[in-house]
Nucleic acid binder design. Structure first.
Lengths: 295, 295
DNA sequence: GCGCTTCCATCGAAAATATCGATCGATCCC
DNA sequence: GGGATCGATCGATATTTTCGATGGAAGCGC
């Protein structure tokens, strides 16, 4: 009786769907089916009524839902109680946009679970993060890049991170129904720092299409880029999360541009040889959880 | 996180010994060590202080002891609650001595867990039990025999079932310090039914040693045998559990006879192809548990 | 002090189990 | 009726669990 069965059951009961439950838990659907079957065999009763394509808990299932909930609660609580006593220090490398718009919430929840663990968060570029992980100076890296495989590093994709081409409201390109690469010819571009992964991909894309562009300025600061764009100094490529407020408030607009070569993913990176503390594991769990929420 | 880890932990904490915990749970010691290590890694803390050969829970261990206890309680409760609703019928074959002196307590506890499951218990001889299991007429057999292996049948040994040679108090053989096979020459023997496993083994033993004996009478009834023996009509071979009270009250005495060929075991027998209901599984668990208690 | 026993940790091999991915049949929706 | 979606099933693979043997440390008795 693995506790994962209970989790699958709870999630399936909540979603009323094995497929969704599997997605949320990071399994394939057949695994959840297996988990539920294990429980059904263990208890000798049917837990879900499968009427056509709709799902409902049987009465036995509902009784177990209560109890399993309490069991998992106790289990989580026990982990929290113990983890609160664990001391330590975490070195994390990440990029500026994530520090500002994605991580604060995660770090806050982490602090609740591990108040005795202090953290140092370094704003870096992708290359710096990878190097820090490789050298062991960093425990964990969180960055935005394309998926990659590496002999020494694990990479867990948290979610796709939509990148948007932002411009001032009323920018000529915004009049177009869709903006393709060619349409960007001759534009001024306010860039993030040299070495930024998606800047690199974007510029390569332009060059490959023979599109001339002009880097008007490059900044290590998000705020600076956003300001420059809103003043009409050029367009900028930024993660959507970094500009949601500006988009909502109409201070910036997103150009209808999309290209698979600049489909990027927020991902966790750590060394394969790294021993994963409960604290680091928890951090990873928290990071991965946000995927389900934002989905 | 398997619940078995929690069980191992609880048992180890109770016994203050991994080895004993393993014995009680039916594992080898190294498995319990592994379980505890899994927990220690999961929580990132040491759960047991291993000071020399003594064991003590650390403070983290004690906190978890509480919580794990409640988790397992909830789990057991959930099984009971569900199992109470399961209906069914169990066919069990066993021998008279066990019906009278071993099974009532087990059946009583079974009824508490599965009140909706009715049972039919057939008093049979070993051959009848095996045949019933093989033909599918019986779900479970509980009998006293020597260990055996069979392609179609599972056999779980519950415990050694000491057989005693009983006689009336003051019987000449009781004067001897030890009774060997030869000493039994010429004795009258009040036998259980033909086909009884330990009767068969006993008579074979006597014949193999060329000891002549006389079967004074044979009965299908324990009470009859005990009465006849106490009246001095002969000696009898019976499971110790069937005569403990008579021995305590001095109405019968046990002769100091022992021979490895009549070392018998109480065991559970069921068909390998048999699908084990939760109810049957529970019955087996209850039967196996008694081993720990009587040990 | 020295063997002897008992305990837990460790390791490799074997067995059991979980997971995935592909596929099937059923159902629902258009 | 065709397409999409859902859960069940199955075989292959990967992972985990279990066991049994062994090692080292600590206590016990002489």
């Amino acid at each position: 009786m693995d506790l994962i069965y209970l989790k699958s059951f709870m999630e399936a009961a909540r979603c009323k769907s094995f497929t969704k439950a599997a997605e949320n838990l990071g399994y394939v659907q057949s695994s959840v089916t297996t988990h539920i079957q294990k429980l059904e065999i263990e208890y000798g009763v049917v837990l879900f009524e499968r009427i056509g394509r709709s799902m409902r808990l049987t009465s036995a299932g509902e009784q177990l839902y209560e109890t399993f909930g309490r069991i998992l609660e106790l289990y989580e609580e026990s982990k929290n109680r113990i983890s609160r006593q664990v001391k330590g220090h975490l070195q994390i490398g990440t990029i500026e946009s994530l520090i500002a718009f994605f991580l604060p919430d995660v770090f806050c929840r982490f602090r609740n679970a591990f108040p005795q663990i202090s953290m140092q968060v370094y704003p870096l570029l992708e290359a710096g993060i990878l190097q820090g992980i490789r050298s062991g100076q960093l425990d964990l890296g969180i960055m935005v890049d394309r998926p990659f495989a590496d002999d020494d590093l694990h990479s867990l994709i948290i979610r796709e991170e939509p990148l948007v081409l932002v411009a001032e409201p009323g920018h000529p390109l915004s009049k177009l129904g869709a903006v393709d690469v060619a349409a960007l010819a001759g534009q001024s571009y306010i860039a993030t720092e040299t070495g930024c992964a998606y800047r690199g991909a974007f510029e390569r894309l332009l060059r490959d299409h023979g599109v001339e562009y002009h880097v008007y300025n490059e900044f290590g600061s998000l705020e600076a880029i956003k300001q420059c764009v809103s003043f009409g100094l050029g367009i900028g490529l930024l993660p959507r999360i970094a500009v949601v407020r500006e988009l909502e408030e109409g201070r910036l607009i997103a150009l209808p541009f999309k290209h698979h070569e600049i489909t990027f993913y927020t991902q966790i990176v750590y060394h394969k040889k790294k021993w994963l503390d409960p604290s680091i594991r928890h951090m990873i769990d928290l990071l991965m959880e946000t995927e389900a929420e934002s989905a």
